[in-house]
Every structure is written in structure tokens, then in C-alpha cells.
Design a protein around this nucleic acid. Structure first.
Length: 822
DNA sequence: GCCATTTCCCTTTTT
DNA sequence: GGGAAATGGC
């Protein structure tokens, strides 16, 4: 570890080891670096035992990365406890399970499980579903738990509020039911750990004493219960370092309390505050765009991010008539840049809602551009996966009635709803679990002849239980599949494609199991505890990366999941009012702007993911829940200072697109005559086969074969000025300001010397000359070594032609490619 | 108890 | 437009 690699502020943050510390870390300011160096510094320079250090993150991904990076810079780094809030709590709760009234094998219920528990409670209580929705009640309960409110607290609060009283009532029953199932939901994990620490001094002392140095990442996303948890843990030594960025707080909807970061200094007396304001990630153009958006928010801690990086390109705005064109435009723009020597890994397409991914996906597939989707439907929530896991869960925790009921008749065993209800009634009457009730078999008075079937099921499960004690997880799952003939069951009535899909998922589960087992010391652990650990990981990991992860791929994800990541080229798709900011946020027009401000922070997060180039795309029309929707451009786009953004393409030819900065009147793009839709020439000029045919091929050939190569006929960048033809929808123009929209820019940027800015030949040029010249030997990570054969001044950037030794001749923009002289 | 058809809800974001 | 849950006929 060499601390002098850090800038002054970063060093200060690393060196300030004792006492409370708040690090306000702007986007791309090297936050993770500071955290990892700080840990290494504690170990190496201060002689702190890694065992006494705790680092808490929000996502498993972040935890994994931090673990890795700490281990990289300091040998004993892997002894540091780096964990998410939730998995840390699980670990603590397993150890002290009895203290909170559970056994150490308690299950963790995901949202689906919770929903069905609630559904049963609705039935039992004859809840009027006109006024109450399961989801609504559950989120009310979740909010209560975030604020550490018990059912009793809620009841008191309710007073004569009938609705709240009902919710409090359901909350109480819900907790009872979970306890009967020996299960906790996500919020319980935090809540019960706090309760444990408050009520069991031994438990608290165990951890408070151990963790002399505590670090919390993404502090702006903590909720009240997490804040309490951290306060309790750090109470003894008071060496608490929290890192966050109030401008990147985007999880208010799930209880994040921005007060935690805003009032840190007040709560933790004598806290030091250090701001990291130098951004190492983005061009100044991108950073300024981000700043010009976020400054519209009211309550901020206040900081001014700056960068020493190059100015870079303007933010490009691509406008389309509909979401299909948008998808095509994104695909063709990516294809075009790929031809400049980029890797698919360099791109991310970010969107507000998961539903947007489908069309983009489809278009990328047609364009033969590999992609990977993050988020969406959780792998572990797919039916076949849940079924298999439910078997495993019951083996570990027979009280888990939710899982048990899921599989008792899957595959079909002739145990229907009636029998299940009868057993349940009996179990309730006797105060025993469903599984225990099953064991009573034919002695259950109301069971009738069904006991023959349930006995058989019980026998099957007991057999699995024995196997579980000695087999690996892999063997056990295989056994379950075989003995239940599950694959056959799940396959009936499906098409070959659907069956293949299920099989793929099951294979994927097997590979996850294998991964897990090879990562664990299975010899030492007995099979049951390995299984337990596996189930735990599975319930806490939302790892939703779909498909194989091999090879370079364009990343598709929601803006939320993009937090913490960075990409050279970023697309923000669907920049429309009503979609982003979401309809929810703008329909609440009262004085409470907090929803809108959260969306704006989300926009800020999105913009600051981009290192070199940012595209924003807009579709005038899109289908929302099957309905056609016309939108105006997102207000966030209008908030970007006009000199930082340019409109690049012109597939869109409507005359009112509500772009406020430009004036909402007709805007004709100077370089492209307005072309009505009925025009013969396809408006879509990305170089693909006509889209209907492409679509047809795609549909009929399945996913294995694909249509024509991406970007065929896509002209090189920067030439748009000379031949506007090439710059139809999606045309990527790297030399910003050229080619398009002198008129547009004039209107777009009234009175700001727009015409000059729009002209390549004006004084508005790149700041310095190229650091390369013909004949230079250079090296690039992807392409290896090569020789520069030509350097062209393209206005705002230099176009390099490089002859790589192995990869052939590539043209690339200097500002884009990571090239070093050798 | 099983299966096909209809209905519903969804879409803000996730540990 | 789509996927899961509820309904109703067998």
C-alpha cells in the first residue's frame, strides 16, 4: 500500500482513523479506493487486527469487490469482516437465535413468501380487498420495521384510525405466523438484530467490543433501523467511518433516511467531515451536465465536484418517434462505435424501469450485439428454481410452512387444497407445525383417505432428509429431481423452447451449487451446514445476472442497479417525463418535491456513470401497459445546461416535442430535411435489413441464429457533416457540434453563441494537440501493441489510425481509447 | 382434484 | 401486452 497515490483529501480520510468520520464522496471520487486503503492503513500502519475491523456495504457485489480489493493490497486483508447489512445480521442472529425466540435454522422469506403469508391472513381475517392490498399492507409493515416500530407501537399510533389499526393487527398476526414458520423477512433481519442488541447486553458486547473500527459504505441509503444498528455497534469505541453521497440517495422508497447522513455531525459529536470532490471518472462535459441537473435539488449537503479530466464530448441527445426506433438507434449507435475499436464491455444502457429492457434487448439481438441484463426477474424466483429450493428449505427447516405447502403437491401427488386446508386446521388447533401435523397421518380426524398420500410424501421427504446428512448439495438436488421426476412434471404441456429454458435454469442452479461447494470447505463442514449456508446465500443474493457471463457484453440495467458502476459509454434510455422522472413523482404536485428530487438524484447517478460519452435517448411515443403514450422530453434533459448537450440524430420529425429549452415550437434540423413517415426511404437508416424481416427471422430462428452483422453500412463517425445521409437515426457523431442542427442549436441555446459552437471550423476546438504522432509505438489492453499511422484533427478530438500487430488497422478517437506510448 | 379459460394486476426502484 | 392467480367445468 502506498498512500501517496492518493490525493490530499483522500489521504486525510485514510489517516483519520479514530473518532467519528463522515466522508462525503462525490461520484467517481475514488471512494472505494479510500475505503480499501483505509482498511489497509489500519492494519499495516496502526497495527489493528483485521479481526477488529468491520466494513458494511449494501450489496453483495459491493462487499465482494471490497473484499477482493482489500485482500489485494494487504495480506491479512481477507480477515476483515466485509459484509452486507443483511448477511451480517443473519450471522449474528443465527448465533443468538434463541435470544430472539427462533432456532438457528430459521428461514429467510423473500417477498413472494411474505406475500402468500399475507394472502392467507387476508383470507383468515376476511379483509376487504377493495380497501387493502397485500402489497400495500406489506409495505406499511416494512416501513414500520424500518422505523423500529412494533405492532404495539403501530396500534398506539393508530388510535381511532381504523385503517392503520387494521394494518397494525395484520402486522401482529404476520409476525406470529412468521415465527410459527421459524422464518424472518428481510426487514426482520435488521430489526431483530437491533432488538437483540438492545435487550441482550452479552450479545451487544460480543460485537461492540470486537469491532473497534467500523466502516459503512453508501451511508445515504441507510434507514433508521440500520442507523440504530450501526450506532449500537460503534457505541463502545466510537471509531465509526461512514461514506456516502447525499446526491446519490435513491432508496428513499425502501426506507432510506437521508437524515442519517445530513445530521451525522450532530448525532456523532465531534465528527470530522471530509469531502472528496475531485472526480476521476468523467469528462468535464459529463460532470458539468450532472452538476447542472443536481443543482436543482433543494436540500443538499453542498459540494462542488470538479475534474482534471479532459473536456470531452457533449452529451448527445437522440430523439425517436417510438421505443422501437429508440432501441434500433441505441443498437446502431453501439454498432458504430464498436467499429471504432470498442469492446461491448464499454457500454451500458440504463433505463428507469425493467420493462424497457425488452425492446432494447430485441434490437441488440437483431444487431448481433451481445448483451447482459442485470436485474429483472430474480433467478431464484423462477418457478422451477423456487420449487427445488423449497425442497431444500423444508429439509433444513421443517417449520417453513410456506415452502412445504409449495411442494407438497409439486409434482402432483393428489394432495389438493382441501387436504392441505384440513391438515392446516388440525395443525392450528394443536398448535404444531404443518410438518408435525403431517406426521400425525391417519390420526388427523378430518383427513379421510388423504393420509395415504401425505404419508407417502412424508416418507419421500424423510428419505431426502437422510440423504441430506451425507450427500453433497449437488447429489441431493439430483436425487430430488430424479425421485420426484420433476423435469418431466415441469415439462408437460410446454414447447421445446420453454422446456429448454427450464432446463437451462436448472443447469444454472447446478453450476451455482458447484461454485458454492468449491468455494466452501465442504470436508470440514458437515453437509447439512453446507446446505444451510447455501440456502442462506441464495436468499440474500439477488444476483440476477442472467445467462453466461463469458465474453464482452453490453450491460443493460436499471438506473438503480447502475449505482457504483462506471462505463466509458453510457446510454440513458427513455428520457421522458412520466417515465423518468416517473409518473408517480410528477403527479404529486404538492409542495413535497421529495419524490421528484429522488428521481433527480437518480438522474445524477445515471449521468455520472459515464466516463467518456453519454447519450440520452427519447421516444415520443411508447406503449405503457399496452396503451400508447405520448411524452415530452424529460425535464431533466432540459435542466442540463444547453451548452453541454447536443441533439445528434433526427429520426424524430414531429413538430412539438415539448423540449422546453428549445422552445416547444417546430424545430427543423438544419442538416436533415423534415421527412414524413410515409417517405419511401426508411427512416431507420442504421444499416440493418428491413426491420420486419429482421424481426421475423429473429422470431422464427430462435436465439441461436442471428441476422446480418451489426452496423453493416454504418458510416464512420465524424463524417456526418459532409454526408448527412449517414446520420439518420442513431448516427453517432463523435465530433460534437458538427453536422447537425445549427438551427437546432441556435434555438436550443439561444444567445449563447450557438452557431459558433456548432461549427467545427470555428475557434471552438479541442484544447490541445495530440500526444501521438505517426510512427509512435503504442499499446492498448484489448488490441495489444501497434503503430500509429495517422493522426487527424477532427475538431474536438483526434482520430488516430493505428496498425496493431495482431488485430489489424483500427481507427479510434484519442479521447476514447486508452492508449499509451511504449 | 385437475385442467383450461378468464381475470387481474402490473410497472418505480431491491436487500 | 404478459404472466400469475382465480375461476369454473369436467
Amino acid at each position: 500500500m502506498n498512500i501517496t497515490e492518493l490525493n490530499d483529501m483522500q489521504q486525510e480520510a485514510v489517516r483519520h482513523t479514530d473518532g467519528p468520520l463522515l466522508i462525503i464522496a462525490g461520484a467517481g471520487s475514488g471512494k472505494t479506493r479510500v475505503l480499501t486503503y483505509r482498511i489497509a492503513y489500519l492494519i499495516e500502519e496502526c497495527g489493528v487486527d483485521p479481526y477488529n475491523i468491520l466494513a458494511i456495504t449494501f450489496t453483495n457485489k459491493a462487499a465482494g469487490e471490497m473484499k477482493e480489493r482489500v485482500a489485494d493490497i494487504t495480506p491479512t486483508g481477507d480477515h476483515v469482516w466485509v459484509s452486507t447489512f443483511h448477511s451480517m445480521c443473519v450471522r449474528i442472529l443465527r448465533r443468538f437465535a434463541e435470544s430472539v425466540g427462533f432456532t438457528r435454522d430459521f428461514a429467510i422469506y423473500d417477498t413472494d413468501d411474505c406475500k402468500s403469508v399475507m394472502k392467507e391472513l387476508f383470507k383468515k381475517n376476511n379483509v376487504n380487498t377493495e380497501y387493502y392490498k397485500e402489497r400495500g399492507v406489506l409495505s406499511a409493515i416494512s416501513a414500520a420495521k424500518d422505523e423500529l416500530k412494533t405492532p404495539q407501537d403501530l396500534k398506539q399510533e393508530a388510535q381511532s384510525d381504523f385503517k392503520l389499526k387494521t394494518i397494525a393487527d395484520l402486522y401482529e398476526q404476520y409476525q406470529d405466523e412468521l415465527k410459527r414458520n421459524n422464518a424472518m423477512d428481510f426487514d426482520d433481519l435488521i430489526f431483530k438484530t437491533v432488538m437483540l442488541f438492545k435487550e441482550d447486553p452479552v450479545a451487544l458486547e460480543t460485537y461492540a467490543d470486537r469491532f473497534r473500527y467500523i466502516m459503512v459504505d453508501e451511508y445515504q441509503d441507510t434507514n433508521t433501523s440500520q442507523f440504530q444498528l450501526v450506532s449500537l455497534l460503534a457505541g463502545k469505541w466510537r471509531n465509526l467511518c461512514v461514506v456516502g453521497d447525499d446526491d446519490q440517495s435513491i432508496y428513499k422508497f425502501r426506507g432510506a433516511n437521508i437524515e442519517n447522513i445530513l445530521s451525522f455531525e450532530r448525532v456523532f459529536d465531534g465528527a470530522r467531515v471530509i469531502k472528496l470532490e475531485q472526480n476521476y471518472r468523467s469528462t468535464s462535459m459529463i460532470l458539468n451536465a450532472a452538476n447542472s441537473v443536481i443543482k436543482n435539488n433543494g436540500r443538499r449537503k453542498g459540494k462542488s465536484l470538479w475534474t482534471g479530466n479532459e473536456e470531452g464530448d457533449k452529451v448527445s441527445l437522440l430523439m425517436y418517434d417510438n421505443a422501437y426506433q429508440e432501441g434500433e438507434g441505441i443498437a446502431s449507435t453501439i454498432a458504430g462505435i464498436l467499429r471504432d475499436g470498442y469492446s461491448c464491455d464499454d457500454f451500458a444502457v440504463l433505463y428507469r424501469t425493467n420493462a424497457q429492457s425488452r425492446i432494447i434487448e430485441e434490437k441488440l439481438l437483431i444487431a448481433n450485439i451481445p448483451y447482459r441484463i442485470y436485474g429483472g426477474v430474480n433467478f431464484y424466483q423462477r418457478r422451477e428454481i423456487k420449487d427445488i429450493l423449497a425442497y431444500l428449505k423444508v429439509l433444513i427447516n421443517p417449520s417453513d410452512g410456506q415452502s412445504l405447502r409449495r411442494i407438497i403437491n409439486v409434482p402432483r401427488r393428489g394432495i389438493g387444497q382441501t387436504s392441505i386446508d384440513r391438515v392446516q386446521t388440525f395443525a392450528d388447533r394443536e398448535g404444531i407445525s404443518f410438518y408435525e401435523a403431517l406426521k400425525t397421518g391417519k390420526d388427523i380426524p378430518e383427513i379421510g383417505n388423504a393420509y395415504k398420500k401425505t404419508d407417502k410424501f412424508l416418507e419421500l421427504m424423510e428419505g431426502f432428509k437422510e440423504a441430506a446428512a451425507e450427500e453433497t448439495i449437488e447429489e441431493l438436488v439430483q436425487r430430488i429431481l430424479d425421485e420426484t421426476d420433476y423435469i418431466n412434471f415441469i415439462s408437460s404441456g410446454l414447447t421445446a423452447d420453454e422446456i429448454a429454458d427450464k432446463q437451462d435454469n436448472i443447469d444454472e442452479l447446478f453450476s451455482k451449487i458447484t461454485d458454492f461447494e468449491s468455494g466452501h470447505d465442504v470436508q470440514e463442514d458437515d453437509p447439512l451446514s453446507a446446505l444451510n449456508a447455501f440456502l442462506e446465500e441464495v436468499s440474500l443474493v439477488a444476483d440476477t445476472e442472467s445467462g453466461e457471463s463469458e465474453g464482452a457484453k453490453v450491460s443493460l440495467m436499471t438506473l438503480h442497479s447502475a449505482k457504483g458502476l462506471e462505463f466509458p459509454v453510457v446510454f440513458m434510455a427513455g428520457m421522458e417525463d412520466g417515465l423518468f422522472p416517473s409518473y408517480m413523482a410528477i403527479s404529486i404536485v404538492d409542495e413535497d418535491k421529495s419524490e421528484l428530487e429522488e428521481e433527480r438524484r437518480l438522474c445524477y447517478v445515471g449521468i455520472t456513470r459515464a466516463k467518456k460519452k453519454l447519450f440520452m435517448t427519447f421516444a415520443r411515443e411508447r406503449l405503457v401497459r399496452g396503451e400508447r403514450h405520448t411524452s415530452r422530453i424529460s425535464r431533466f434533459v432540459s435542466e442540463i445546461e444547453p451548452s453541454l448537450i447536443e441533439r445528434v440524430n433526427n429520426s424524430y420529425v414531429g413538430d412539438d416535442f415539448g423540449f422546453e429549452n428549445a422552445g416547444a415550437s417546430a424545430i427543423s434540423d438544419g442538416s436533415e430535411p423534415a421527412s414524413p413517415a410515409k417517405e419511401e426511404k426508411p427512416r431507420w437508416r442504421g444499416g440493418f435489413v428491413p426491420k420486419n424481416k429482421a424481426k421475423f427471422d429473429f422470431m422464427s430462428m430462435g436465439s441461436a441464429k442471428r441476422t446480418s452483422p451489426a452496423g453493416a453500412g454504418f458510416k464512420k463517425t465524424g463524417e456526418a457533416h459532409a454526408s448527412p445521409d449517414t446520420a439518420g437515426s442513431g448516427g453517432y457523431v463523435s465530433t460534437s457540434g458538427t453536422g447537425f442542427g445549427k438551427d437546432f442549436l441556435k434555438e436550443f441555446n439561444p444567445g449563447a453563441g450557438a452557431s459558433k459552437a456548432a461549427d467545427t471550423d470555428s475557434s471552438y476546438t479541442k484544447p490541445s494537440t495530440s500526444k501521438f504522432s505517426a510512427g509512435d509505438r503504442v499499446s492498448n489492453e484489448r488490441f495489444g501493441d501497434g503503430t500509429v499511422t495517422n493522426v487527424e484533427d477532427k475538431g474536438r478530438d483526434n482520430l488516430l489510425t493505428v496498425e496493431f500487430d495482431e488485430m489489424g488497422v483500427k481507427k479510434m478517437f484519442e479521447g476514447f481509447i486508452n492508449l499509451r506510448k511504449i
